[in-house]
């Protein structure tokens, strides 16, 4: 028994590049969605609708890419564009839902959590309904003719058999978005006047208003961007990782993004790190389940999957570091 475990661990080590490859692919989804969480919450609006918006983005992107792809199946240039059209649809869908969230929560001062829950329920039923109505199927949509998964990014000067080559093998554009976006968001939030204003709105809207910052506009901007990012994360699942929409998408991906946002203490770079940290757990779980199911007798799968959430609770509770949300979070702003 002991020898088997040693073998398992040594083979796991061999698998490290593959594990990191999976980590990058899974982590990208969480990271992009988590950025959506960070920007909304920094402006003082809770967005627990990330899950629902991801689902909507996943569905709209597949629908657009599917019809565009088949319509232009004889035109190679337009055909190549089809996943990008899907991405565009996800962005539009996400922006629209973000706008709705902002309209209800900012303009009408509705309860942000309640509306987030409503969007989640709506996307759950709504996308299932549309899947049936548009594709006539209940479990999953038919595959799109061309997805991002079919067009991985190839960097010519990296040897595909090297360590880095194996890690970056088959990575789509989303992985690179996930690596660059947090840096841009970090620079925006902490190095520009606009970012400072946005954070001021999330910490102390009254003071921000007094200084002439338009609280409503700032929040609208943040929540719409948040929707766009969640939409892109959804497209990442359906067009980047797979090539169709399945009924379970995103299966808690939006909530783990929220967890990553908190774990990263509302800092884009922290959230990025947390996303990849969580994704590594998931990749490890998959790798063990596929290659060494016997090991799961010692560390049950459920424990693996529950770990990111448990860690987030510990961080929140201050047992591991301390996460403090923006001051004015969840409160609608009444102009005095």
């Amino acid at each position: 028994m002991f020898r088997e475990e040693v073998l398992a661990i040594s083979v796991l080590y061999e698998m490290l590049p593959t594990l990191l490859n999976f980590t990058l692919a899974f982590g990208a989804v969480t990271a992009i969605a988590a950025m959506g969480g960070v920007i909304a919450e920094r402006s003082g609006v809770i967005n627990i609708a990330l899950e629902g918006i991801m689902r909507i983005g996943a569905f709209t992107s597949v629908t657009a890419a599917y019809f565009w792809g088949y319509h232009f199946s004889n035109d190679p240039i337009f055909f190549e564009l089809s996943p990008w059209i899907g991405l565009l649809a996800a962005i539009l869908g996400g922006a629209l839902v973000g706008l709705l969230h902002a309209y209800i929560c900012v303009t009408w001062k509705g309860n942000q959590i309640v509306n987030g829950v409503a969007i989640n329920i709506f996307s759950y039923g709504g996308m299932t309904y549309l899947l049936m109505q548009i594709f006539g199927t209940a479990g999953h949509s038919p595959p799109v003719p061309l997805a991002f998964a079919n067009r991985p990014i190839v960097i010519p000067w990296i040897d595909p058999y090297s360590f880095l080559g194996k890690v970056l093998w088959q990575q789509t554009v989303f992985t690179y978005i996930a690596l660059v976006l947090p840096i841009l968001l970090y620079l925006f939030l902490f190095e520009t006047t606009w970012g400072l204003r946005l954070r001021a709105v999330g910490e102390h809207p009254r003071a921000a208003d007094t200084l002439g910052i338009n609280v409503f506009k700032s929040r609208y901007f943040a929540v719409i961007v948040s929707g766009v990012l969640a939409g892109i994360a959804g497209a990442n699942i359906s067009l980047g990782i797979s090539n169709l929409f399945t009924i379970h998408v995103p299966a808690g991906g939006g909530f783990i993004a929220l967890a990553a946002m908190i774990f990263g203490k509302w800092n884009p770079l922290g959230a990025l790190g947390a996303s990849f940290f969580f994704a590594f757990f998931r990749a490890l779980e998959v790798a063990i389940a596929v290659s060494f199911p016997a090991l799961l007798a010692y560390i049950p799968r459920g424990v693996f999957l529950a770990t990111p959430y448990l860690l987030t609770i510990l961080v929140l509770a201050g047992f591991v570091g301390r996460a403090v949300p923006p001051q004015a979070i969840g409160q609608p702003y009444e102009k005095g």
């Binding site: 329920i121 039923g125 309904y129």
Partner: peptide, 23 residues
């Protein structure tokens, strides 16, 4: 020919309108 998930849609719409009860 209307999928049963329509129930979820109705429920979600009702909650959205409760959330937007300001209107």
């Amino acid at each position: 020919g209307i999928h049963k998930s329509f129930a979820d849609i109705l429920q979600a719409l009702a909650v959205i309108f409760v959330a937007a009860q300001g209107i």
